[in-house]
Each structure stands twice: as C-alpha cells, then as structure tokens.
Design a protein around this nucleic acid. Sequence first.
DNA 1: AACAAGACCTGCATGC
DNA 2: TGCATGCAGGTCTTGT
Length: 274
Amino acid sequence: MPELPEVETIRCGLEAAVVGATILDVKLSAVRLRQSYPEHFAERLTGRRIVAVRRRAKYLLIDLDGGETLLSHLGMSGAWRVQAGEARALTHDHIRLRLADGRTLVYRDPRRFGLATLCPTAEIVTHPLLAGLGPEPLGDAFDAVTLLARCRGKAGALKPFLMDQKVVVGVGNIYASEACFRARVSPFLPAGELTRAQARRLVLAIRDVLEEAIASGGSTLRDYAGADGAPGYFQHRFEVYGREGEPCTLCGAPIRRAIQAQRATYWCAKCQKP
DNA sequence: AACAAGACCTGCATGC
DNA sequence: TGCATGCAGGTCTTGT
C-alpha cells in the first residue's frame, strides 16, 4: 500500500490524534507479521504514553515515554487507524492498543508484509532496519550530485534503481513511474547513463510529486486510508501509473506498461525516450 | 559487487 | 456457481 506520502499522511494523522495518549492495554493477533514481535512486546507497551510520532523512510516511529520507540512498517497492505471506542477486532487487526481516553489504536495488515518492533529511542538511527537507508527525498541531503554519485557504474534500469531504499528512501512503484515521467526520463535508461541535467530534473520531480501527493493525503488505490479513515485523492492526478492505453497528458500518445524487476512500469514512449 | 529471481501473504477481478 | 489465474502500494534472501 504505502509509499512515503501515504506513510507521512498516517504519521501526520497519528501525531494529531494520539500524542499524549496513554496505552491502557494491548491485544495481539495470533499470527506473525514479516518478523516476530520482540520479547515482552505487549508488556513493554502497556502503560506507556505516546510522546511523538515520527517517520524515517517508510517506517513509522511512535516514541513512548520510558525511552522506547514503537517501530513499524506497513508493507503492502498495512495501516494504523484510530477508532472511537472499542470496536470489535476484524480478521486482520494484529495490534490493538486501547487508550486511556477510550479510543483504540489499531494496526491492520491483511498481507502481513509489514512489521512492528520496539527499539530504544536513542538507538533508532543504528537499528538494523534503518541503518543502511539512503537520504530522505524531501531533505537537503538528497540532491543531483548525490544521486549522480550513486548512479555511477550502475547498469540496471533507472526506475528499479530509484526504488532501491539505499539510493533514496520513500519512492515506491507508483511514484517512481510518476517521477520518471515528470522528469522526461525513460524508466529503462541504465542508471549509470543519467546526465547531470536529467539528475537535476529527477530530483525536482521526485520532490514535487511526493510533496503534491502528501498535500492530497496520499493515493488510494484499493484500501489505503489515513489514520482517521479518510482516503487520499492523489490517484486522480496520476499521469502514467495505471493509465495503460490512455493518452499521455502531454503528447496524447498511448501510455505503455511493461514489467521491470517484477513490478509494473508505466511510461510515455514518446516523451520519455531512452 | 551487482543484479535477477524467488519468497513471504491475502483479497479481489477476470475468465472459463 | 466454482475454480484457476493474475495482479496489487514492499522488502528480504538466495542464486548467478
């Protein structure tokens, strides 16, 4: 489900809704997510107060008093949702945090590609899941010079390269196609052949598309929603993703679809020549 | 080292 | 109606 804009939208919603709330008790489903919960997971959450909600790449960081952080990833189908009252648990509700004010914070993930774990807040940056991640695309550390340096010697195609979280974080299958289109660069261009001008355009395109998507509350294709349950609406602004056969918004040529690294890529063959 | 392919899951749309 | 197939927003591991 979620790329950076969707995770950021959830982060923002959680920050507004649950900072200051205290976890009264914890219920876990019997199945395991991508990785098992840490030792004494429920006990370590119980009684804690939520002090901040942050994001690193596509990970959500829920800081608790007492010095631990609840680190979660939403995989393809995960979501955090704040529910009024103690609604009945649905089939794929894996973590249910009953809050002292009566609401319930629920982690739901049908496909279970997501994960949740705990980490000392002071050690977040060195956590194995986060240590190797590339720069945040909306931060100063991501620029054309850095991108070009990472591209050097890479024979692989640009679009899968952009989805590599060691290169830049937060860009997934939708926004990789959208960013290549906005930058007028072919998704099939070997990453090592990227020119400086193309790198500059790509950096701007990635920033712009992510920022616009955040402003639209993310993209809802099937089941994504923010922490309050509201869908995003950036999907109405896709220029290539999911538009196979429809006219290019620039030149009218039919948008094409192909598979790269086992994922669907959408592009305009006329506006994005190799 | 770099890249491709497979693995991990469920749910939904489609076609026979 | 039932069943098979393919596809979906992500990463991690294995194999060449």
